[in-house]
Each structure stands twice: as C-alpha cells, then as structure tokens.
Nucleic acid binder design. Structure first.
Lengths: 185, 185
DNA sequence: ATCCACATGTAAGGCGTTACATGATTGG
DNA sequence: CCAATCATGTAACGCCTTACATGTGGAT
C-alpha cells in the first residue's frame, strides 16, 4: 500500500468530511503547516495516488462553470488511517538555519552570538503571534480550542524567552559592547 | 556561487580546522544533527562541489595504506561563510509525526490523544537524555559548554513537561478510563 | 477592465536518505 | 580470524518546492 506520511495528512483531513484539493491546502496552511507542510504540487498528485489505491474516492462537483473534484475517505482509507495512527511515530525532522548560525558563531564572536539570539527570538515571537492570531480566529468562529495550536504558541513563546535569557547570560561586558558598537566586538 | 545551507555546515566546521569527510560526519552527528542533519551521501559530493568552487581545498594525507582526503577552508570559503552568517536565516522546517498524529486525534478520541501525548513526551525525554549524555562527554573532555546543546536539552525537557501537563488537563474521567482500559475510550 | 479568490494540474529540479560497493587497520 | 572502526564514494530513489500553465467567477 505504501502511503507516505503526507498522504496521511490528506486522509486525516478527509476524515472530517469531503473536501477538494484546494480546500485541503487551505486547511493545511492554517493547521499542520507548522509541523507538516504540503504544497499543491504534492496534494493534487497524492490525492490521485490515494484514489488509485482505493483509499479515497472523487466526484466532480462543478460550481458554476468551474470544475471541482471533491474527495471522500473510503472505508478502506479509514482503516488505513486507523492502522497508521496505531503505529509509533517515526519522523522527527528539523532544519533550523538560525540555530545552525548560532551554533557556528558560538565561542567565536560574542557579538554575532548576540545577533543570532536576537534574530531567533524575533522569529519565534513572530510565529507565536501568527499562531495566536489563528487561535483568535478559531475562537471567533466558535470552534473548539486546538491542542497543537496551544503547543505551537507556548513553544514559540518559550523559545523567545530562552533567547532573551541566553542573551542576558552572555558576558555582560560583551553584551554592552555589542549593543553599543555591534561591528567591533 | 550558490552553496546550499548544508554546504555552509561543512564550511563552518572546516573553520575550526582541516578535517576529512568522515570526521565532519562524526562531528555533525554529535552537534548539528539535531537541527541540521547530513549523511555521507551528501557530505562527500558536497565537499567536491565546494572544492570546484574554490571554497575549500583538499590534500591527500594517507594514514598507513588508507587514503584520506583532508579538506581545508580557503580564504574564499571563509569570506563566503562570513557573508552567509550576515544574511538573515531563511529555513525553518519541521516534520513531526507525533504532533501530526496528536493533531488528527484531537477532538476525536480522548484515549488516543492521551496515547499520543505520552508517546511525544517519551520521545522528548529520550532526546533530552541523549543530549545530556553528549553534554556530559563534552564536560568530561574539558571543552566549553555548548549553547545549542543547552537549548536542545531545555527545549526537550520543556516539551516533555508540556505533554504531561496537557495529559493532566484532559477530562479527568476520560484520563482515568484511558489509563485503566485504553481500548474502550 | 482588473484584480482577487477559486480551482486544478504538470515539469523541472533540488535536496536528502538508503543501500550498495570497496577496502585498510586495529583490537580482541 | 573476526568485528569494529576508519575511510571514501556512487546510484537509485523519494519527497518536496517552485514555477509554470490554464481558466472561471465575483467584486470594485
């Protein structure tokens, strides 16, 4: 059968009800995107693959003169999804360029370390803000609060605070120098 | 010039001194691996690419009858690395299957949510333990404490605690049921 | 008219892993 | 002698993104 993890994202979303590829993409972008992204270039071919495997079925439901392919989770797809949910998670991958830069700067030039910490903290704060925004929208729509969204918010707030703390813990003299004359070190 | 971010990992490590591909791989596995992994299948070809671009130079330094190619960062490579360090980080990617499963289970079956939280917490704890081990080894070798290692440790400890807290916050009755009879829900 | 949202798709290419292939050296 | 470690590499393949290509419908 051999469904990649991104296929399961689609099956999982289709469990909530029939959707078009376009709608799935929108949902992904406000939810799993932060721990499992998916582009159109993946979603449309993957839906076809899932259909060939009998895990979803599609129906053409044009809206006006505009074609739409609405996908529905089949019984077989539901079983496959359930089986996958029982299996222990395998994939934990991270590529974090800020952390990489921080690592390579560490022990070299305290002013650069300070700069990377600031950058990383800023990024985490922005992401937390973006997620809080989504949380607000969900609340406004009267839908249930989302556990993973909370996780994303609190985690990024934690990261921002960690960066602040780490910057404060740098040799205070260095820090002052860096803040005053970032070029010299 | 067009060096991928993984190329910069190599340049950054070579800034510490000349190394073979094999040694670089070992270093990566105890350091950047947790936020930027690299396999032999990437390292060896990438080193050759960097050499073609004049960013590193190599010398054959056999040890016994065993061939070894030792790479050194060139002046040009140092400049390229410095320029990259100045640029704002772009890549922040995560694929977290545990979080995906938690997300898809949320609001469906509290017992499954509980199970995924436990799994996720366990994974974070294991990773934190592994990182503390590395930290201990570094301390034993008398080397400086590593900022990013601290980050990894504290972050994973935070995640483990978050999972515990989230599990505790689940409807207490559900939780007790789940703990007693995980199959029924 | 023009722009945005809706809607579907493909092609090229980048990035990365896994598996394979090879062989020397060292320690038990 | 055997296993582990040192050491280098390639080939096949999977996964994913970006860019391109196309077109409708509604709002301004």
């Amino acid at each position: 059968m051999d469904v990649g993890a991104t296929g399961y994202v689609l099956l999982g979303i289709l469990k909530w009800g029939p959707r078009t590829g376009y709608e799935i993409k929108q949902l992904v972008d406000r939810s799993t995107r932060f721990f499992w992204a998916a582009s159109y270039g993946q979603i449309y071919p993957e839906l076809k693959r899932l259909e060939r495997q009998g895990l979803v079925s599609s129906e053409s439901e044009p809206r006006g003169g505009r074609n739409r392919n609405v996908y529905t989770l089949t019984r077989k797809g539901r079983d496959e999804l359930r089986a996958w949910m029982q299996r222990p998670p395998q994939i934990f991958e991270t590529r974090n360029e800020a952390l990489l830069k921080l690592f390579l700067a560490a022990g070299e030039r305290p002013d650069e370390v300070w700069r990377h910490l600031a950058e990383m903290g800023r990024h985490a704060e922005e992401l937390a803000a973006r997620l809080r925004e989504i949380e607000g929208e969900i609340a406004a729509e009267g839908r249930d609060p989302q556990l993973c969204l909370r996780y994303g918010i609190e985690m990024n707030e934690w990261i921002a605070k960690w960066c602040e703390r780490a910057a404060d813990d740098l040799d205070p003299e260095t820090e002052r120098t860096a803040a005053t004359a970032p070029r010299r070190g």
